[in-house]
Design a binder for these strands. Structure first.
Lengths: 273, 273
DNA sequence: AGGATAAGTGAGCACCGCTCTTGAAATTTC
DNA sequence: GAAATTTCAAGAGCGGTGCTCACTTATCCT
């Protein structure tokens, strides 16, 4: 009965290194030519190994894509969290703006990575949710925390606003199923209700009511739509993309945050300087 | 000097027919397997011609893709216009809801077509704007007309709302360049300012001010983001996707339309029945 | 009728994902 | 330490792809 479960000899070390190199070269190719042009043979060639050799490390092309997707989610989450955590936690407007700008900048810096996770799903297969869910929800979880803090500071856009009146009760009830706030509801129900993408850890301690969470989702959708529109150039060449994005970001902010007493337009002004 | 410019013999007729069949089969394959799996050889095989023969009719794979993109834009525009034009022109809320639901239904019915035009751009190349611009802007033009009508009926969400206050003057000026309303500006400037996607014919007779147009763009972005989110399953499996979409649609509506006196929630109620 | 033009054919190039066999190396077991 | 076992590199090969080219045949135009 040896104590070592996993091997650790020179072979294992070498394997780990090669796996890392494969992922590194794959990310290079992805950044240069996009996911569609990603070729296992080309990666193997770059690494000086024979084409079939790469299948010792990668199960299939889809498998490699899945790893890249997870990696991209992590990269995005790291960028957004780093930016967000460097901001005064009490400045809700700035936190929202920071999340938005960090997401946008990350997407513009590595458009192929963005396309990988928020563009059209690859060919037939769709990323196995069980491998991408955890990494994919991080940013959304951050938004939830922001909503919770806004709730605690009484800065949430109130429910009786115009846009909520337009939602009749039935719709709101439906939403309570779809995007339930889960105030007090056990996390297991959360997973069932909103699906694996919005899973357990992010709903812990969140209690903001279904309407607020619904508007949070709308803000998120608008933010993501704005970034998508810009990265994919859906409106053609836009002269002042910055201004357009600031508009979208501010509209989205207005869906969740009441304007602070002192500063209006702060979230944009901060980044205009 | 013959009077006929284009040939019309039995050869031309046959060519026209074959071109149509190629597009038809291509659309079949697209619907079944998606754009990434589209193969010229397979199409040629289905048509009983030898693989190289298809290059007499199609310049390249990208060329066929471009035709499919244009076709998809047309198909989408047809669907949205047909639904929209069957609605009372004075009922602005219902017109907006109809546009949104028609877009969503079209996207859900043919997700691969939707991915083709609103998903990640194909491999390296991006669709030549000069061939896709006209078809691509139709729906956006419809939204502009709706905004203009709202303006004329004094139903536009006013400029001094909270979300506009947040936009400082500088931002609004930037936007006036980006998404200028072009009140009175010559169409040639319009093309230069907003790019080929928002080209001449759609700005004829539009005079709603830059702020309203900016909010119109935000509404459009949110709508498109909502459809993208659903078609690409970006939030994972959502139990009540209908309710979530109605929420997004209503939030987007609130960005451009003041609630009518009599009916709140009408736009959703209409389609809930 | 005859030359120009267009369409169909098949071979071929370079690439792709992926599988299988074979021999060498590293590791584990005895 | 030697044998058995697992892991890996390498190569050949299958069927698929986009695309080109030379060649024949059919249609068109004068």
């Amino acid at each position: 009965m040896a104590t070592t479960d996993q091997p650790h000899g020179k072979r294992a070390r070498r394997r780990e290194q090669i796996e890392g190199e494969i992922l590194r070269v794959a990310r290079e190719h992805l950044a240069l030519h996009g996911a569609a042009a990603l070729s296992l043979r080309a990666i193997a060639r770059d690494l000086g190994m024979v084409s079939s050799g790469i299948y010792r490390y990668v199960e299939s092309r889809d498998d490699l894509l899945t790893r890249l997707i997870i990696d991209s989610y992590r990269s995005l989450a790291d960028a957004v969290f780093a930016a967000h955590d460097a901001v005064d936690a009490n400045d809700l407007d700035r936190r929202w703006a920071t999340i938005g700008f960090a997401l946008r900048q990350w997407a513009l810096d590595q458009p192929h990575d963005f396309a990988l996770i928020y563009g059209s799903p690859v060919p037939d297969y769709q990323a196995p949710a069980d491998r991408t869910a955890e990494a994919g929800t991080a940013v959304l979880g951050l938004l939830l925390r922001l909503l919770q803090d806004a709730h605690d500071q009484h800065r949430l856009t109130p429910v009786d606003e115009a846009l909520d009146r337009a939602l009749d009760d039935e719709s709101l009830d439906d939403l309570a199923v779809t995007a339930t706030a889960l105030s007090g509801a056990p996390p297991s129900d959360a997973v069932r209700a909103v699906g694996p993408m919005l899973a357990e850890p992010f709903f812990a301690g969140i209690s903001i009511g279904s309407a607020a969470l619904a508007r949070g989702l709308a803000a998120w959708t608008l933010l993501l739509g704005a970034v998508t529109s810009e990265v994919f150039a859906q409106l053609g060449p836009v002269p002042d993309a910055d201004a357009l994005f600031r508009l979208h970001l501010d509209v989205a902010r207005s869906l969740i945050l009441l304007p602070a007493q002192s500063s209006t337009g702060l979230s944009t002004a901060v980044f205009t300087a």
